[in-house]
Design a protein around this nucleic acid. Structure first.
Lengths: 234, 234
DNA sequence: TTAGTCTTTATGTAGGACATATCAAATGTG
DNA sequence: CACATTTGATATGTCCTACATAAAGACTAA
């Protein structure tokens, strides 16, 4: 009897909506977003003042400010003392970092992000071959050489340095920053391994391929390098 | 004299920090983050009540609530009427969407994100071959077949449907949602083209490869399919 | 034990008050 | 008239108080 009750409740919670107790600040936040989009403000444009907005929305200045505070955090608006508020351009990744920071991510998402990183590394080849320079390759080689006579404690650091340099060589700033954000995750998953899982292709091998090989060669090399990680996927 | 003065000021403004007018809410937000991290709360743990926090931080409840409102938006904490606040697990991507939404992104970042998408698609192959099912392939084929006799207005929609399905087949939820977020960007860049840039490998070709070809075949196919986009990179 | 009621309490919301920084106009000076 | 200075107006930042509301926990009754 009891068990049945519990079951039905569990089922319910799956089916029914999670009962979002919309607080006023939530509603106002949404309305403000819509307002900004609808009016198609350009960065730098001035916004109405707090009291006007609060009155128009029919909420206290307090609630309005909570909503504004959120948008301000995201970099969507900026405020100055007398001048009022202006629309700004948010730093996409900067805000992303804020959430990733405390690392309170459930395991399934963690795994997803780790895979995301693998996907990125595998797909990097084209960009790399379009933009690589001799200087870059030399730097990459230096990084790879350093790690030869190193104890295990430095292994991860070198791993990070090498792959980080690869992202940098892609010439894509967003990608590079994105990768930096994902580092802790990569780190975490790697440390889950008991012993270092080395692919059949080393970092130095990859550098060599970059020097003389084709894009196809590099893709195969990277695949072999990451193979141990792929092997653990199911 | 005057010019010199102006010059030196300009130089200063480049060198010096941008004078972050730290509002109390900003400081409190940071302090709360540190507090949460330091105490290493686990999801579900109860937090002190607002008044206690406000007093401990030496700020008004108002300021504290602005900071809390931010964390609440990011999904880092949840609050219930009497129970107080509890630590929650943030929805990584959900917050990302919020910033991406208004599409006030500068062109260089736009380009970066477009490239990011290309990288993702190129790197998807391994995951795809690990997890693809016959059912998936059949659905993908249906999507590809639909687009044969279609006017241009549906072209983008089909493009989106096909590639979206690919992400779905990766079995990576985060990746899938990430791709959805990036759609508007992809859309935007694609519409910049005057005429459709078709690669030498069509969607149907890709499906065929998925059926009978190897991972390597698929990678080459995808590369050819996206070649027009890569050609535009510099 | 179970069901129902009451009390307590932490959050949600409102409104007023004042400090502060800054823009803009008024004022003074050569 | 042009330029520097002062003054006033104003929007945001911060604080405070008060009350509504929902929900946990205690208490009571069947």
């Amino acid at each position: 009897m009891k068990d049945i009750n519990i079951m039905s409740i569990t089922d319910l919670s799956k089916d029914l909506a999670p009962i979002i107790s919309n607080t006023m600040a939530d509603v106002v936040e949404t309305k403000l977003r819509e307002y900004l989009k609808k009016k198609s403000f350009k960065p730098g444009d001035a916004l109405p003042k707090e009291l006007e907005l609060a009155e128009a929305l029919g909420v206290s200045r307090n609630v309005l400010r909570e909503a504004l505070s959120r948008l301000r955090m995201l970099g969507m608006i900026e405020t100055k003392k007398k001048r009022g508020m202006i629309l700004a351009r948010p730093d996409i990744l900067g805000t992303f970092e804020r959430v990733l920071d405390p690392l309170i991510i459930d395991n399934s998402t963690l795994q997803d992000i780790f895979e995301l990183r693998l996907v990125l590394e595998m797909g990097l080849a084209e960009l790399l071959y379009i933009r690589k320079t001799d200087k870059d390759i030399k730097e990459l080689e230096n990084i790879a050489k350093k790690e030869i006579n190193n104890d295990n404690s430095f292994r991860i650091k070198n791993e990070i340095a090498f792959h980080g340099k690869l992202y940098e060589m892609s010439g894509n700033d967003t990608l590079k920053r994105f990768q930096i954000m994902l580092l802790p995750i990569f780190d975490y998953v790697v440390t889950l391994e008991q012993k270092p899982t080395r692919g059949s292709v080393s970092h130095l091998d990859l550098v060599e391929i970059l020097k003389t090989g084709t894009v196809e060669d590099f893709k195969k090399g990277m695949q072999a390098h990451l193979q141990p990680h792929f092997d653990r996927l199911k």
